[in-house]
Write a protein that binds this DNA or RNA. Structure first.
Lengths: 242, 242
DNA sequence: CTCCCGGTGCGTACAGTGTTCGCGTCATTG
DNA sequence: CAATGACGCGAACACTGTACGCACCGGGAG
């Protein structure tokens, strides 16, 4: 609980100039944290384990990172760095570009499922370099397509909210499934009694699950459902100056 | 880590019939947990504190609740119980009804800001009674309006994803602000150097923040931005059989 | 009635967690 | 060469979730 005067974000000031031998650096710590998170999940990331993985004492990390929270902020920005906003030859092609970025973002999150819940916590007041670059480039893309600046901002925020909200659930499901060590079929079988019970008084849910069970083998339901919402959103967007 | 055979959700089986004196009950525990969470936030909820608030030992709770995770699942479903899906006289009026529910959901989350991150984690496989009722009623509303069942499902999931993703950021901002004990103006002033730095190489962000700073006193920006994305999404939705 | 037995409360204990403090050490600068 | 700061880190603190085992008590069986 850093209730000092210094509550400003990580990005307020650059890292202290490090002149001594850099056996341990902020970048190194962030990189190793991501490796650990990818390998063992968010519950497995403790400062002690991270220190051990870096051949360092646990408390040494605090020379380079104020907090575990701050470390996670740095990690999030690093992950955002995996995304690239395309540069368009024809500004009118904004729609497939936005759609592609949403897909890229979903895939990025599914590559690092632990990141989804953290992403939601960093809000609009987040000023990491990669997040700033990303939103600025998105604003540019939309502005070139004829969207007013405030409107583009609304669109970017809405897009991020949708992708994050959606993938948070999806990632949580995938993580739970992985932890259980079961296949999807086994898991669903185990949920069966709870489902049947829920169906009894909810006829539409019952019909829905029945329909999905029959259709399942043939298609990628999560991807399709993600695209459905995404496309409805894109359908609703129109540049003010076309 | 309940890696037993019994990984099925809380709702698989009803609570064990309790015949002895019910000095402690599941409902009581859930209710008190919500009181504590509303009062002191999610970090303050520990099993020991919760037990103390109930004049009980910490470990007594485990007779009624398997896990802290399960407790949070129960809490989430209880909170969902605050939402009501309107019954429409005219099925064609689906749009304002969906819009109103999104607003209601946002307000519910802002009433319990700690719930936002947890909401994201409970995915589509969540079968609490209130969640089941809510989605079933939403499906009914949309089906009456002419949406096919699978399409209604996509719409409901997309709507929830958007609202949750959006409000998670908003709630995190409000919580951080509250913890800091500062006013919004003070906070923004403190962020100033970080912002200025981010602006230097990001001209569109700079213009955006300048415009927002000038407009701010007059309007409720979060509400408006929330509505912007919501309306774009609703604009994109059309019943298959009108 | 007695017996007993399952559900309940809870004290203790364990293996962790994030983080503070103060000490020793080392490289670089004056 | 001396000193000044940054750095690494061992120990300690105040917590956390939860497993275990014991005590108790109410109600049904014999």
């Amino acid at each position: 609980m850093a209730d000092d005067q210094v509550i400003s974000s990580v990005w307020a000031r650059p890292e202290k100039a490090r002149n001594a031998r850099p056996t341990l650096s902020r970048e190194q710590i962030v990189a190793e944290a991501i490796r650990l998170l990818d390998a063992e999940g968010v519950d497995a990331l403790s400062m002690r384990k991270l220190g051990q993985a870096l051949n360092a004492g646990a408390t040494s990390l605090y020379r380079h990172v104020a907090n575990k929270d701050q470390l996670l902020e740095l990690v999030v920005d690093e992950i955002y760095g995996e995304l690239r906003v395309p540069v368009l030859d024809d500004p009118a092609e904004w729609r497939p570009a936005v759609r592609a970025l949403a897909h890229e973002m979903r895939e990025m999150i599914l590559r690092h499922p632990w990141v989804a819940p953290i992403l939601g916590l960093v809000g609009s007041s987040y000023l990491g370099p990669n997040v700033s670059r990303l939103t600025d480039e998105m604003l540019g893309l939309l502005e070139d397509a004829g969207f007013a600046l405030e409107e583009g901002n609304g669109a970017v925020k809405a897009l991020f909210a949708y992708v994050i909200g959606w993938t948070t659930s999806e990632a949580a499901w995938l993580l739970a499934l992985a932890r259980s060590g079961q296949t999807e079929e086994q898991w669903l079988e185990q949920m069966r009694p709870a489902m049947e019970h829920a169906m009894e008084s909810h006829p539409r849910l019952a019909r829905l699950y029945k329909a999905q069970r029959e259709a399942r083998p043939n298609l990628n339901i999560p991807q399709d459902e993600f695209d459905y919402g995404l496309d409805r959103f894109l359908d609703g967007m129109h540049p003010t100056r076309p």
